[in-house]
Amino acid sequence: MERLLQSPITLALLLSNVGVSLYAFTDPSLIRELSFRPHRTRENREYYRFLTAGFVHGSGAHLFVNMITLYFFGPWLETFLGAGAFLVLYFGAELAAHALTFAVHRDDPDYAAVGASGAISGVLFGFCLYRPLAMLGVMFIIPMPALLFAVLYVVVSLYAIQGREPGTRGGIAHEAHLGGALTGILLTALLDYPRAVTSFLREMQGLLG
């Protein structure tokens, strides 16, 4: 908790996500107004949805998983990058996540997505660039190196996107996860060059002996 208090951006993002989402749970119309709807965004120029969708969630479980991930990895990454760069990473990943979702679903009038998953993916993968061999508790149970998790994450997302049946709606927003993850790696490398890249190469060199 002390480290969280020393990471004001992470704390502010946690509080805003929880506050807006909990309020939206009591008013479903707010979720409809803030969610990311590619077709409406294009037709009505509702570009605000690229940002607002990241602050509402579909369920308490959805909110919990995203916020517990931000709680574990956000303060660490904010300390390394600094507050300003961390903000760029977080919202850059969110915008990229929704941009990929927009590209895939812009012609689907019924598609809608909510949640901070794209931004959180960017934070998680930014962490992986520094600590690729750190052991993560996937689903809080399965131990797995961060790098292996990152590779599997991308592969599963790509497979799910390609294998989705036409007209399928709902479920996991794989496009958002993939777009946020890849942008998280790129932005972290650019924002903290060459330290982030050097850190990754050093850890991999140690693995290979």
Rank of each mutant, 00 (worst) to 15 (best):
A96L: 14
L100K: 01
D108I: 06
D110Q: 12
S117G: 09
R106I: 15
A119V: 06
F102C: 02
E94F: 05
A119T: 06
V114Y: 00
P109Y: 12
G92I: 01
V114R: 00
G115I: 00
G115R: 02
A113K: 00
G92Y: 02
D108H: 09
A116M: 08
A96N: 10
G115H: 04
A99N: 05
P109D: 14
R106G: 03
A103I: 15
R106K: 11
A112P: 04
D110L: 12
G118C: 07
L100S: 00
F102N: 00
A99G: 15
A96T: 14
A99Q: 06
A113V: 02
F102W: 08
D107I: 13
E94A: 12
A116I: 11
G115P: 03
P109L: 14
T101A: 01
A99I: 14
A99E: 07
H105D: 08
D110V: 07
T101P: 00
G118N: 08
D108M: 09
H105W: 13
L95G: 06
A116G: 03
H105N: 11
S117F: 04
D107K: 10
I120N: 02
H105R: 10
V104I: 15
Y111K: 08
A112D: 04
A93H: 12
G92W: 01
H105E: 15
I120P: 00
S117Q: 07
H98P: 03
L95C: 11
P109W: 14
D107Q: 13
A97W: 02
A119Q: 05
A103W: 14
T101W: 00
A119M: 04
F91Q: 09
A116S: 12
S117L: 10
H98N: 14
G115L: 06
R106C: 07
S117D: 06
Y111H: 13
T101L: 01
D107C: 09
G118A: 08
A96E: 04
Y111E: 15
S117N: 08
A113Y: 01
A116R: 01
A103G: 08
Y111Q: 11
A116D: 01
D108A: 10
A112V: 15
D110R: 11
E94P: 05
P109R: 08
R106N: 12
Y111I: 14
A93M: 12
G118E: 06
A103C: 10
R106W: 04
D110M: 12
A112E: 09
G92M: 07
H105L: 07
F91T: 02
G92F: 03
E94T: 08
F102S: 02
A112N: 05
F102Q: 01
F91H: 08
H98G: 09
A96W: 07
S117I: 10
I120A: 00
I120E: 01
A97R: 04
D110T: 10
L100V: 15
V114D: 01
V104N: 07
A116V: 12
H98S: 07
I120F: 03
A97H: 07
T101H: 00
T101Y: 00
A103Q: 11
F91W: 15
G118T: 12
A119D: 07
D108T: 14
G115V: 04
H98A: 07
P109C: 13
A113D: 05
A113G: 08
A93Y: 13
H105C: 05
F102E: 00
L100T: 06
